[in-house]
Design a protein around this nucleic acid. Structure first.
Lengths: 198, 198
DNA sequence: GTATATCCGTAATTCACGTTACGGATCGTG
DNA sequence: CACGATCCGTAACGTGAATTACGGATATAC
């Protein structure tokens, strides 16, 4: 199988894995279930991913790369820092509380090795932090925000923007946010942030 | 077995369940594992709790009762509203991000029926809200805080106080907070809250 | 075209778990 | 004390999942 063809096949398999994961949760997701959904064989899955943990590791890592890429694309702009945050806000809410992210968080919650949690966190908060750091430093340079500790300023922003939505999503008490929800949440976070740090 | 003796025995069994749950996660917790830890038999567990879900339902419900009781005790005071919030803050952080709460959140995340999540949410956020509502209304009456929407004010407080700590705890990326952590987190939340709503 | 590698669909193996069952010990009641 | 209920420790049963194996089909490389 040629490389590009294999890549395409892997994407199909991983899309199938997400379908099963989102429908049945981590505990209800079996390798055979994924194989069936993807019209692949167990042998191929094990050959390509090693074991169940390896498949999930790959899902998380791939998701990480996509999230990071997506956010970096959003930073390719000459807008002022606050405008960038206003644009990023709804997207961050959607990325961090969408069905896929929640399914992955559930998998990580069930993973007693801590490995998926580590990777997921590196793809989530820990990947977002340095990107936001650049924006916050710019906001300070532009005189739009005032803070001593960049990390604390970013953490405040994430508290206001995301808060406890994720855990409430993970335990099944909050539905996926609508675009309006995301916009409203982001708007509110920006208002509070500016009031606190301006 | 007399009632008080049975109650004691149940507490022992439930303590053992928490030990296994916290050590091995929900997926790694078996009824037999709990029975062994509690030096009880499977038959007794099944007789008393019905099935595995029933045991976990009981854990969550019991925890709910204790959390609610604990918080209500904290409200038996003539202090002004902000002082009450200052006292409650660290306790809320500890209750919502302690090892037991996190273990229960993990169980709820793994429960595809949504039942544990529902009960857990009713014992957590949804139980805390009405208690905090009384305090926030008092703060407004006393002229300490200004807001139109009580729910939104409480949600803001919880965002600032708890933020995304829970999910980070659940996926294994944040250790249990120290008393200093709790105090610091609460202090900061109060500062921000007053700045926003005073 | 041929040979080899790989994939699919399915079966087989092993293990663990949820749940029930059982014999003996212990407890509670009359 | 005797009897019945219940608990403990252990075994048994059925099911499902992780993983490996296999025969035939398909794809790739020479």
């Amino acid at each position: 199988m040629r490389d590009d063809k294999r890549t395409l096949r892997q994407q199909q398999i991983e899309a199938a894995a997400y379908q099963v994961l989102e429908a049945k949760g981590y505990g209800g997701t079996s390798m055979l279930g994924i194989a069936r959904q993807a019209k692949a064989s167990n042998e191929t899955l094990y050959n390509w991913y090693g074991d169940k943990q390896g498949l999930f590791r790959a899902l998380v890592a791939r998701n990480a790369e996509e999230v990071k890429q997506h956010l970096e694309d959003q930073l390719q702009t000459d807008s002022d820092a606050l405008t960038i945050l206003e644009t990023l806000g709804p997207k961050l809410v959607r990325l961090l509380t969408g069905d896929r992210a929640i399914a992955l968080n559930r998998a990580a919650a069930a993973d007693s090795t801590g490995e998926l949690g580590a990777t997921l966190s590196q793809s989530g908060r820990e990947a977002i932090f340095p990107l936001l750091e650049a924006v916050f430093l710019r906001a300070r340079t532009e005189g739009q925000l005032t803070f001593d500790d960049t990390g604390a300023a970013i953490a405040l922003f994430l508290d206001l923007l995301i808060g406890d939505q994720q855990i409430r999503r993970v335990i099944g008490r909050l539905p996926e946010p609508t675009p309006d929800d995301c916009n409203h949440r982001a708007r509110r976070a920006m208002d509070h942030l500016c009031k606190l740090l301006r």
